[in-house]
């Protein structure tokens, strides 16, 4: 998949435009202040309008400016495998709130550190070592030196 900076800009412009419209739709049921003045909805709507405006400018800039922006910068290294790894990485980190109540701080954090190291192609023993020592240092630092319970 090959993408130039201009195309990315235009695409994100469209996304932000849609996002702004969604905010407007979402805030339509927010209550007003007494005497009909705008209340909780005012600020999100202003921001939404900002998105819509910014999005439109992003989309149309390439059409109106004659100057060719640096299209040489191609961002092409997209791969499904890497994206999969990214999702796994997110998944592993996201497990923390689930496993922490059962495994405690030391167990869950060092497991996640180890798994992330594994994803980053660190040798297993090294990943385990680093994850474990880092966890222990953090634990002792927080609990005994700084007095922050974990």
């Amino acid at each position: 998949m090959k993408m130039t900076q201009t195309k990315i800009d235009q695409m994100s412009g469209i996304l932000f435009l849609l996002f702004g419209i969604i905010i407007w739709i979402y805030t339509r049921n927010f209550p007003d202040l007494e005497e009909g003045y705008p209340g909780p909805a005012l600020f999100p709507r202003l921001i939404g309008s900002g998105f819509i405006l910014g999005g439109i400018i992003l989309v149309i800039t390439p059409f109106i400016s004659s100057k060719v922006t640096d299209d040489s910068d191609e961002k092409s290294h997209f791969s499904l495998l890497n994206l999969g790894k990214l999702v796994i990485g997110l998944f592993i980190t996201g497990l923390y709130p689930f496993i922490q109540p059962y495994l405690g701080f030391i167990g869950s954090i060092s497991l996640i550190g180890f798994a992330i190291g594994f994803l980053l192609n660190v040798k297993p023993w090294l990943a385990a070592l680093v994850a474990l020592s880092c966890t222990l240092i953090v634990y002792f630092l927080f609990t005994y030196l700084l007095g922050v319970p974990l």
Partner: peptide, 16 residues
Amino acid sequence: PLLLIVITTLCIVGAY
């Protein structure tokens, strides 16, 4: 990569 393991740990601990 090793530093990133440390960063991951710190991110979780810090956010918590």
